[in-house]
Nucleic acid binder design. Structure first.
Lengths: 252, 252
DNA sequence: CGGTAGTTTGAACTACGTCAAGGGTCGTGG
DNA sequence: CCACGACCCTTGACGTAGTTCAAACTACCG
């Protein structure tokens, strides 16, 4: 029930789309940073405002421009947030993991989703109506403040991404992104610190503002250096230090 | 007291650095979106928690990595938020105007400023201690929610910037940035919709992940097309539609 | 075992970065 | 008030990293 491929070291639990483990719901909500300090009483009440939604890998959860009606919290699986660029490739903004939220944040009524959410793997998400979430925020001020902190962190992270995408070589951008992903998804394995996500070269390209071909070339080169191990849809980091020192290199 | 240059159409009020007009303080706080709905009583109390700080044009307000102790609200002038890239040029993340805030947002204690703030013009800012601001948030839940909305908007804006910087030609990136700046700072003038900020080609380059030379070339070209008017440290938009349609063009 | 989706590699082209020099504008001080 | 010096802007020539197009290869799935 856990394994999936033969050669690929990636192991992702198979979950039924459209079905969340009911016992999991509560655990997930407790895990979410901005609900963590609530009493069991309160959490039970909040739990009832959420409902479950399942998605298959590749399925779209919502599209940008649609009316923003729900906030989602990931219970299982991974979700990617992306924006369609007009004349060019899509841009992959974030790869989200269980416990993280996405969807309608800024809730000036009648707003729309600014980006598109797609299930990267099979996903089980907890969804809540924007109005209901607002009610929670109004009731529990501690939740609001912690949620604010979480959004602020996202903003910092986005700013950091802007910096990294700006005026950097493809090598540096990809190196940065691998480190960022490893920090979030990394899992020690025989092959190295495995990035636990089915990540294609296209995904990597969309995250780093390059092309799949360039991503492939850089990844190959890193592998030749012995810094990473790679395969179809996966990458593992062997030498984190090497990648990190590459970032700090001055481009003479 | 208002004018400054001869040929440049830019007009920026000269303000005394290190001195805010005391009458202005109150008006500014009322103007800030997240304080707008408070009673006069409450606003007076809040007003007392802020103190004034003045900066000359070019002066640094704080540096990244310093302990993040204050939240700032701009009363007069403009502030740029930037990050130093290791081996390369700085990156200009945001250009902020009166009524906008910056500084310590996410306040897990002992945090540091993630970016550097520099006065673009002479600036008068209202500063508040992080702890005091937290108190305000705990007291007025409506403020917290509106502040959350503001931060969420910033996050959306940052995501949009990432999209625009990704895989676009220099023309498109600069076109996008001009439109963004015009929306924020634009002021109708004989020369066109003037971007009311002393903006150098370097600034523009740092915002769009290019070089000053490329920025200059693109700006010259736009001028030849008759879409904009430019000069030393200023740019005015004559044909917004042309710029916008350029963004939507597919790169065939 | 065949098909689909992901990956790799090559070769040609080009937008942009880099280096360098020259010209305009401003404001400061003589 | 003029002149100098600092700063900003422009333009050219050149090299190159990275995109683009295209084809072959490989892993996985039914």
């Amino acid at each position: 029930m856990t394994n999936r491929r033969r050669k690929s070291p990636i192991q992702i639990d198979i979950i039924e789309p459209h079905l969340c483990d009911p016992a999991l719901r509560f655990k997930i909500l407790q895990m979410v940073p901005f609900f963590s300090k609530l009493s069991e009483q309160d959490l039970i009440a909040i739990n009832q405002l959420f409902y479950e939604k399942g998605f298959e890998g590749g399925e779209y959860i919502y599209f940008s421009e649609e009316p923003a009606q729900h906030l989602f919290i990931i219970a299982e699986g991974q979700v990617k947030l992306l924006r369609h660029a007009m004349g060019s490739k899509d841009v992959l903004l974030e790869l989200l993991v269980p416990g993280e939220f996405f969807g309608a944040l800024s809730n000036q009524d009648n707003s729309i989703y600014p980006d598109t959410a797609q299930a990267q793997t099979a996903v089980c998400a907890l969804a809540i109506n924007v109005q209901d979430f607002r009610k929670i925020l109004k009731t529990y001020s501690s939740v609001t403040i912690k949620f604010l902190d979480a959004v602020s962190d996202r903003l910092q992270s986005a700013h950091e991404t802007i910096r990294q995408l700006s005026g950097q070589s493809a090598e540096k951008k990809i190196s940065y992104m691998l480190l960022k992903l490893a920090k979030k998804l990394g899992q020690p394995q025989p092959v190295g610190l495995l990035i636990q996500a089915p990540l294609t070269r296209d995904d990597l390209a969309e995250m780093t503002a390059t092309t799949p071909e360039t991503a492939s070339r850089v990844v190959s080169q890193f592998q030749k250096e012995g810094w990473i191990s790679t395969g179809r849809q996966w990458i593992a980091i062997r030498d984190e230090t090497a990648l990190r020192s590459l970032l700090e290199q001055n481009s003479l």
